[in-house]
């Protein structure tokens, strides 16, 4: 079987592209659509750097066969800022020094967005659980957890 046409709604834009059988959503996002915020870390769902929102839920995009989600909606980090303005999670990460090398950051932010979409006022434990699938090698996690709680507070005030 040759490549198939896949339709996705990515960051609120309809995208149509070809995918070879077995291509992951991550590969389609990065290599075909040029959306490189989602990272290729471990290719087995263990590091979380490929985290995106699929139909509103956080998933490891390296483990999604893109042909099986034809018609779905996907949100990546590129779709988080509104009209060029960083959202509360992004601002909180920047101002809270919650990023060093930045490799885990897109996945962490998407996991945070997924959490706050469902649970706008999470406890510290709930934040920790939401990012339990995301590995960070630089920060020791504390600033990231603080930034997500800070983002929740900022969003509540907005």
């Amino acid at each position: 079987m040759a490549s198939q046409v896949v339709n996705l709604r990515v960051n609120e834009r309809s995208r149509e592209f070809l995918a070879a059988p077995g291509t992951s959503l991550l590969s389609s996002l990065r290599d075909t659509l040029g959306l490189t915020a989602a990272k290729r870390g471990c290719a087995q769902g263990g590091c979380g750097t490929c985290t995106v929102l699929l139909d509103g839920r956080a998933v490891m995009s390296c483990l999604v066969a893109v042909q099986t989600v034809d018609g779905a909606s996907v949100r990546t980090l590129e779709g988080v800022a509104r009209d060029g303005a960083l959202d509360e999670v992004q601002s909180a990460f920047l101002e809270g020094f919650a990023t060093q090398c930045g490799f885990c950051t897109p996945g962490m932010i998407m996991a945070a967005e997924a959490l706050l979409d469902r649970n706008p006022d999470p406890t510290r434990d709930e934040v920790v659980e939401a990012i339990s699938g995301n590995v960070c090698r630089c920060t020791g996690y504390g600033p990231i957890v603080d930034a997500i709680l800070d983002a929740a507070a900022r969003r509540a005030k907005a």
Binding site: G45, G48, T51, R57, A58, V59, M60, L63, V64, A111, A114, E129, A130, S132, G133, N134
Partner: peptide
């Protein structure tokens, strides 16, 4: 069991 992200899949 695993993480919420994995559990979603």
């Amino acid at each position: 069991l695993a993480s919420p992200t994995i559990r979603n899949q």
